[in-house]
Nucleic acid binder design. Structure first.
Length: 880
RNA sequence: GCGUUCAUAGCUCAGAUGGAUAGAGCAACAGCCUUCUAAGCUGUGGGUCGCAGGUUCGAAUCCUGCUGGACGCACCA
């Protein structure tokens, strides 16, 4: 027997349908209501509940019932005749055997069957056949009370299911490029990925969130070149003009305004350099050349220097970041690196083409380009010692590597700051740079195995359509080959059942090639094994190096989920037969979660939009609205105003993380509990109520509203379609928007609070907020009847409760389609239903018992709304 | 040219995987704040589901063709 849906009404119906199906002969005979037949077949072990569940549909209109079964579905189960006939016969069967007072259920031999039939009459009051449909009508009161009890009992676990039990899903999302600003393009991946992670988690999967940084590639040569050449220039890309193009290299890196800017906003500064590089390169081809050389040096040093990636460990937290930014290393670096790089720059002028340089290798000791790589000469490398480890021995590394590390580190810091704002976290930060070693090896093995072949000096894997390019003609690896290597390493570590790449649809070809490669590797497993053996036993220097790479490549990724960065353990050796070992297992487990582009997104100046500006724009709008509205709402209507405004986060860990980040000046040894509620107390000075409203941290609220608007805007539509960007749409807080959902929750909170106060109910309001949901509430839920069919508002409540009951199915649906928008539209419907109720049915002043029950009902609505918002990673506000 | 993908109300989108009468939100118009937050609610108007065929009891949904848009097509990621 397979697992059933969490809703007992549905599971009961599933069993009934099963009985109908296996007793088909009995159903097809027109049974005489009075002639009892107690030989009903029933075999508990053989039920495939999932299959039967698919037969159950929701009628389009409540008047057609609460569940229905289209009888034409039953033809596949062996029923014959017209759909109308089938429906009629089945309804006849149900009335003869179950809802028939003359039929004595107790005479059934199977006691389980007895219970089932008894339950059925309790859960369903009415069954009819209408055309091709068999319609089932709930015992509405029982249903409503059942669902409300369920939500109140399970709280923020309501809707959770375990369809992903014992399965691991790796989600690769966000993946910004180092040294480039975090724009709205990355936002989509980030937001979709984060939401999927939460939804998968809610379905019981072990979910691993990975941020795969674009920390490698030709652009870093460009950036380093630009940094060395232009760092002291006046660059203002906003106005699109470059003042002072000259060579300003006399005083290397003074503490001038540029340095201040670099320290203050490194990513933006680097972006400016990058833009400047491209505009300069148009007239000066030498720049591109220099960039290429510098990247080659960088790549080589990453591969050759054992702990290259680990230097100035990215795992370090604020403490060490401060060292980099403010302390000795920084100053040391800035003085020396600038000098050194200037030297290489000067030398570089003699070498216009990189192949010349490559060919003059080793014998020209004055050629600094090569010495950097091979000899670590004083003038072209950087001495440093690792303060963290109290390592007294100074090491020397190439300047390119040093700068690259600095850029990388500062960028990660900046990204983390932004992720913090939108409440996104990762289990691991990875980088392309980490898999380049393995990627090199992959190319060799595939060549030997005849799976790949050379084509115009490059290495390709032939495919039906476009051949996959896995190495450039200069032997360096590409995005694609690194992705293959990365997938292997990840599989080795996580043994995932699924890996999702949340990347825009413009990269569809790349991923279809990637998946194809694994398919090809699987088909050629034997060849691969041979090739790997060969690779191990060969003697050429090149191959030895490769074996060396593979032995030293990082394999060990720290298990600690909370450690946010890559931890590389270089001591651990890995299997050489990594590819043949895992490739066939990986095939078929990779998915490209593609999404459409954002069209027409630009600032008023026409440039790339930075995420932060985007959020700020939304925040400003919210602030405006808030200042207009609160004045009216809280001062005129409710003179007692707000006592406290609580800005809540949904995740304790993330909350703590944020708190720690914010409080950097004080040693925060307070217990966690105090941190949880960021309560901002307002001076409740009666005289000056009007001004107080603005003392409230409406800033915080506005920010959350802005974030909610921005995030929900990306999640409310299906991934695949392109978004026509329109400021008015994003900045609209009315209708189908994030703020509308947040507002609905805030309304419920406020209402509950008011009613509890008015009626002196002992309800601890703070226990009702999402982050506290794990704690026991003081609500008594033993009382089963929260509502009654005779109540005036019953129909309204029933329609809402029915919607609440869908949550589990919605979540499953979202997972099977990898589509967060399914949750989004569900929430909009639910919020609309609630607001309808809110507006049309006033509770204040009604009977206390009745009101108390309604509060419990409101809490159950709130639970579902908040659960959904949490799944979408939309901030939940207690008040707004 | 080849491939992927999209086309539903003036605009932005749903449409439960082929099922009962195609639904929301903006925008327009008409109402609703001296009791619960008007970021809200109620009502009205608005459709040849891009076009043309096909598949069957039944199509916005599936297949083919066409039109129109977006993206991609080997040394970028």
């Amino acid at each position: 027997m397979t697992e059933t849906s969490g809703n007992i009404f549905k599971s009961n119906l599933i069993f009934l349908i099963y009985i109908i199906i296996i007793n088909k002969e009995l159903v097809e005979i027109e049974t005489d209501k009075n002639s009892a037949n107690f030989n009903i077949k029933f075999d508990l072990d053989k039920i495939n509940t999932l299959e039967i569940e698919k037969l159950i549909k929701l009628p389009p209109d409540p008047s057609y019932g609460d569940y229905c079964i289209p009888s034409y579905y039953l033809k596949q189960k062996g029923f014959t005749g017209s759909p109308e006939d089938i429906a009629n016969k089945i309804v006849g069967f149900i009335y003869s055997y179950i809802i028939n007072p003359l039929y004595d259920i107790n005479k059934l031999e199977n006691s389980y069957l007895q219970d089932l039939f008894k339950n059925f009459t309790q859960y369903f009051t009415f069954v009819n056949a209408k055309g091709a449909y068999i319609n089932f009508y709930f015992n509405k009161q029982k249903f409503a009370n059942y669902i409300i009890t369920e939500t109140l009992t399970k709280k923020n676990n309501y809707g959770r299911n375990y369809s992903g039990k014992d399965k691991t899903v790796v989600i690769d999302f966000s993946s910004p490029n180092i040294a480039k600003p975090f724009g709205v393009g990355h936002l989509r991946s980030t937001v979709i990925g984060m939401s999927l992670a939460r939804i998968y988690d809610f379905c019981g999967y072990k979910t691993i969130k990975i941020n795969y940084l674009g920390d490698f590639g030709t652009q870093f040569g460009k950036l380093i070149t630009a940094f060395c050449r232009f760092k002291d220039d006046d660059i203002d890309i906003d106005n699109n003009k470059n003042i002072n193009n000259g060579d300003n290299t006399k005083n290397a890196f003074n503490l001038n305004s540029n340095l201040a800017e670099f320290k203050n906003d490194p990513v933006k500064f680097l972006y400016k350099l990058y833009v400047k590089f491209h505009s300069e390169a148009e007239t000066n081809p030498e720049l591109d050349n220099e960039a290429r050389i510098r990247f080659q040096k960088l790549e080589k040093s990453i591969i050759e220097i054992d702990d290259a990636v680990e230097l100035f460990n990215d795992t370090s937290d604020d403490e060490n970041n401060n060292i980099i930014i403010n302390g000795n290393i920084y100053d040391f670096c800035t003085e020396n690196i600038a000098e050194n790089i200037k030297d290489t720059q000067d030398n570089n002028k003699d070498n216009d083409r990189d192949d010349e340089i490559v060919n003059t290798e080793s014998d020209n000791s004055d050629n600094t380009e090569l010495n950097i790589i091979n000899n670590n000469k004083k003038y072209n490398s950087i001495k440093y010692h690792n303060i963290e480890s109290n390592d007294k021995i100074k090491k020397e590394i190439p300047g390119e590597l040093y700068l690259w590390k600095i850029f990388r580190k500062l960028s990660i810091q900046e990204f983390k700051r932004i992720y913090n704002i939108i409440n996104v976290s990762f289990d691991f930060y990875e980088g392309e740079s980490q898999s380049s070693k393995l990627a090199v090896n992959l190319v060799n093995i595939l060549l030997k195995a005849d799976i790949a072949e050379k084509s115009m000096d490059a290495v390709i894997i032939p495919m039906e359509k476009t051949p996959a390019l896995i190495a450039k003609s200069d032997g360096t690896t590409l995005y694609l080959s690194r992705d293959v290597a990365t997938a292997i390493l990840r599989f080795e570590k996580f043994k995932f059942d699924k890996m999702l790449y949340v990347v825009g649809s413009e990269q569809a070809l790349h991923f279809s090639q990637l998946f194809n490669i694994f398919k090809i590797l699987k088909e050629n497993e034997r060849k691969l094994i041979e090739s790997e053996k060969l690779n191990m036993s060969c003697n050429s220097d090149e191959d030895k190096n490769n074996i060396n790479y593979i032995n030293t490549i990082n394999k060990e990724i720290n298990d600690k989920r909370n450690n946010n960065d890559i931890n590389i353990n270089l001591n651990k050796k890995i299997d050489v037969n990594l590819f043949s070992k895992y490739a066939s297992e990986i095939a078929g487990k990779l998915y490209h979660i593609k999404f459409g582009r954002i069209i027409g997104m630009s600032t008023r100046k026409g440039n790339l939009v930075f995420l932060e500006d985007y959020i700020n724009e939304a925040k400003e709008k919210a602030l405006l609205k808030l200042s207009e509205d609160t004045k009216f709402k809280y001062n005129k209507q409710h003179p007692d105003g707000l006592n406290n405004i609580v800005c809540d986060y949904f995740n304790d860990d993330e909350l703590t993380e944020k708190k720690i980040k914010n409080i950097d000046d004080t040693d925060n040894s307070n217990n966690k509990k105090d941190e949880k509620n960021l309560i901002i107390n307002i001076n409740n000075n009666d005289d000056d109520a009007e001004n107080q409203v603005f003392d409230v941290d409406i800033d915080e609220i506005a920010l959350k509203v802005g974030i909610g608007a921005v995030i929900f805007n990306d999640l409310k539509t299906r991934r695949s379609i392109d978004i026509n960007f329109n400021w008015d749409n994003v900045l609209s807080f009315e209708g189908q928007t994030g703020p509308y959902l947040q507002y609905s929750v805030a309304r419920i909170n406020s209402l509950i609070e008011k009613l509890a106060k008015e009626y002196s109910f002992k309800i601890k309001i703070e226990k009702l907020y999402y982050s506290e949901m794990f704690a026991d509430t003081d609500i008594e839920i033993e009382k089963k009847d929260f509502c009654n069919v005779q109540d005036d508002d019953f129909e309204l409540i029933f329609s809402i409760v029915k919607h609440l009951s869908l949550l589990e199915d919605i979540v499953k649906d979202a997972v099977s389609n990898d589509e967060p928008s399914i949750v989004g539209t569900y929430l909009l419907d639910l919020a609309a239903l609630f607001n309808n109720y809110y507006q049309n049915y006033k509770l204040m002043g009604l009977e206390p018992d009745f009101v108390y029950n309604r509060i419990l009902f409101l809490i159950s609505v709130k639970i579902v709304l908040e659960t959904g918002l949490n799944l979408l990673s939309v901030p939940i506000l207690k008040k707004m």
